[in-house]
Simulated scan of single mutants.
Amino acid sequence: MKAAPEAQRRLLDLQAVDTALAQLAHRRKSLPEIAEIEAVAREISALEDERVRAQVAVDDLDRDISRFEKDIDQVRQRKAKDQKQLDAGGSLKQVEGLQHELATLNRRQSELEDAELELMEQREAAAAALTEVQDRITAAVHRRADAERRRDETSAEIVKEQEFKAAARGPLANDLPADLVTLYDKIRTETGMGAALVYAGRCGACRIELYGADLNRVKSAPADEVVRCEECRRIMVRTSESGL
């Protein structure tokens, strides 16, 4: 392929724009906030599991406490009934039987109330654990929201710069021979770089030094010949800095 030396040199300007665009795209995909958001999301997921377990513990204790309250209430009702019968009087045997049952019911009520008190203390600790994990979830959600805000702000800035670079690329590419740009774009799509300056006898893309027959090939090529690197296949742009 033939192309004027000046057109080949301007490929470097086009490559500079494309390199900048590639770097901006990579930067946008690799923002530290993205990793931060993913880490916080994993943290929130783990905390949600912890919150569910804490909530289940509280619910189980509430159910047990409710059962004890019902049992205590039943004992109280039975005591009230016995006390009413005792107050109404009766035979000695009936009175002794009621007194014995009341004593038994008092012991049972005391045992139930002690057990309930222990459960209530456990419930207080479980509720505190639930509140603590909920607070940690809230804090993590706030951190994620802050990271998302920073990500969006930085991403918006990068997009603006990408749009600016893309706008500059169009006129630059349009001023170059269409077949040269087509070849350049094909190589760039395949390798990430379409053209590079030959500098001090080295390919500016793969950094391999030209020597022997390859060096002679490049040195002897006409100025308007589009030369490609034998190693990396990129277009090699020759200037006075090429050392040929």
Rank of each mutant, 00 (worst) to 15 (best):
P171C: 15
A127P: 01
T189D: 13
A166D: 12
E6N: 07
V218Y: 00
A196Q: 02
K84D: 13
K29H: 15
E116P: 02
I187K: 08
E161I: 06
D62F: 10
K29N: 15
R9H: 13
S91I: 02
L183M: 13
G192K: 11
I137Q: 10
Q8A: 10
L215G: 11
Q77H: 14
V198Q: 01
V133C: 08
K219I: 01
T239A: 08
C232H: 05
A128Q: 03
K79N: 06
L61W: 05
A166W: 10
N106Q: 07
A57G: 04
E69T: 02
I235A: 04
E111D: 09
N106F: 02
D49V: 06
D152S: 09
S45Y: 09
T182L: 08
A22W: 09
D87Y: 03
D146C: 00
S91F: 04
Q94A: 12
T239H: 11
V17E: 12
R238L: 03
S30W: 10
G89L: 03
K165W: 14
A22E: 10
E225F: 12
R67N: 11
V58T: 00
G243N: 08
A140N: 05
C203Q: 00
A41D: 06
A166R: 14
S30G: 11
G192Y: 09
R228Y: 11
A7G: 05
A173G: 10
R217V: 04
R228F: 15
G97N: 00
Y199D: 00
L12I: 13
T154W: 08
L11D: 06
I65R: 02
L31A: 10
Q162E: 15
D73G: 11
A221L: 07
E96G: 06
L92S: 11
R234S: 06
D73A: 15
A178D: 15
T138D: 06
A125W: 02
R67H: 11
L130H: 00
R9D: 06
A39V: 03
E148W: 03
E36D: 13
A4N: 14
H142Q: 14
A221G: 05
L119D: 03
A128H: 01
T131K: 15
I34W: 12
G204W: 00
T182W: 07
L61K: 05
L21I: 07
L86S: 05
K2Q: 04
Q122G: 09
G192Q: 12
R10H: 10
A145I: 04
E161G: 07
K70L: 04
D71M: 14
